[in-house]
Amino acid sequence: MADTLPQEDIDSDPYRALKDIFCGTAGGIAQVLVGQPFDTTKVRIQSAPPGTYSSSWDVVKKLLAKEGPLAFYKGTLTPLIGIGAVVSVQFAVNEQMKRFFKAKNNGGEMTLPQFFMAGSASGLANGLIAGPIEHIRIRLQTQTTGPKDFAGPLDVIKKLYNRGGIRLLFKGLGATELREGIGSGSYFLTYEGLVQRQMKKEGKTRQQLESWKLCTFGGLSGYTMWLSIYPIDVLKSNMQADSYKNPKFGSYSQAAKYIFQKFGARGFFKGIVPTLLRAAPANAATFVAFEETMRLIG
């Protein structure tokens, strides 16, 4: 059975990296399908002009009334393909870093700082892919009723590239990398720390832990990640939602100044409610899909 393979057999599997990527892709697809409505709500709040929405619930009501339920899945195609790739890279790099640290420790247990460093490395790697993918998604998510600038993901890419080349497509990359480095470190530190603690407590292998416990650990990891990096994400969203034809922000400092002047310190936490509501189900789905797929293929 796949769930009873000795750890040394798993580590020496010549197809391990490909399996990590495949399982990460499964986790990414699950994350998008579960989390997209929450993410659309979050982005609308983060990037809307003052007075547009009074609360997260106000976003939901206006989206349903003016654009219909499918509006919550605007821009889904890009993340469904892209986030699958992003999460596959994230999990594959994290698993590789775990093997690196385990070898460095002569087969011994990893320390909590090592879990953080492994997760941080995975975040920096996937940030290069996540940056432009999230930029495209945000352009589509922030389109409301009436004339639209973009007909779809490919149209976004074409118009952004024609306007500002690769540099415009990768707008917000610095904030994305900072967010991913800190956030993914916190994310995997929390998850792996909880998994290791439970394994010791119950005397079980990783493959023997119940799925509901993995769901719980994944949800808690999502909370840890977002609470550690949310203001950075707000800054990134405002940079990427800024007009690509007549931008207000020429730098992160200008965007930060605008947010503070318009909303005060609370502006850096706009949209945190739907984000935290999303964190538990989306990240629980991500980790369970990853772990269960890993058990299935060995």
Rank of each mutant, 00 (worst) to 15 (best):
M117Y: 14
L227S: 09
G185D: 11
A255M: 13
K213T: 08
G27A: 04
A65G: 05
Q143T: 01
L128K: 05
R139T: 00
V156Q: 12
L276Q: 11
T40D: 03
A279G: 05
T190E: 08
L64K: 06
Q196K: 13
V87Q: 03
L64E: 08
T293A: 12
P14S: 11
L220M: 14
A256S: 13
G264D: 06
V32S: 02
A48L: 05
V273Y: 12
A265S: 12
M294C: 09
G123M: 06
E177C: 04
P247F: 15
S55L: 04
E8Y: 15
A17M: 15
N106Y: 09
D58G: 04
V288K: 05
R266W: 11
A280C: 04
Q96Y: 13
F100E: 13
K74I: 06
M239V: 10
E292F: 06
N106M: 09
T275P: 01
P37A: 03
M199A: 00
G24M: 07
G127W: 10
S211D: 14
L124S: 04
Q240S: 13
K98E: 15
G222Q: 00
K61P: 01
N94W: 14
Y73C: 01
E291R: 10
Q254A: 10
R295A: 04
R99L: 09
P153A: 04
N126M: 14
L194H: 04
A26M: 15
T25H: 09
G152Q: 04
F115N: 14
N246P: 02
Q114G: 04
G127Y: 07
I272A: 00
F287V: 01
A289F: 12
Y244R: 04
P247H: 08
N126I: 03
G193F: 12
Q240H: 00
W226A: 05
T142I: 02
C23A: 12
T40Q: 08
H135P: 03
L63C: 04
P14M: 06
I166Y: 15
R44Y: 03
I133M: 13
G35W: 01
F263V: 00
I10F: 15
L154H: 07
T40S: 06
W212T: 13
N106D: 15
G298H: 06
K204P: 07
N106A: 14
L124H: 02
G174I: 08
L178Q: 00
E180H: 10
G203K: 03
L18F: 07
E67V: 01
L18Q: 10
G250M: 07
L227F: 15
D233C: 09
G146C: 12
P247L: 11
W212Q: 12
T78N: 11
K245T: 12
L214F: 03
G181W: 06
N126S: 11
L128M: 14
T145L: 03
G264L: 10
Q196I: 03
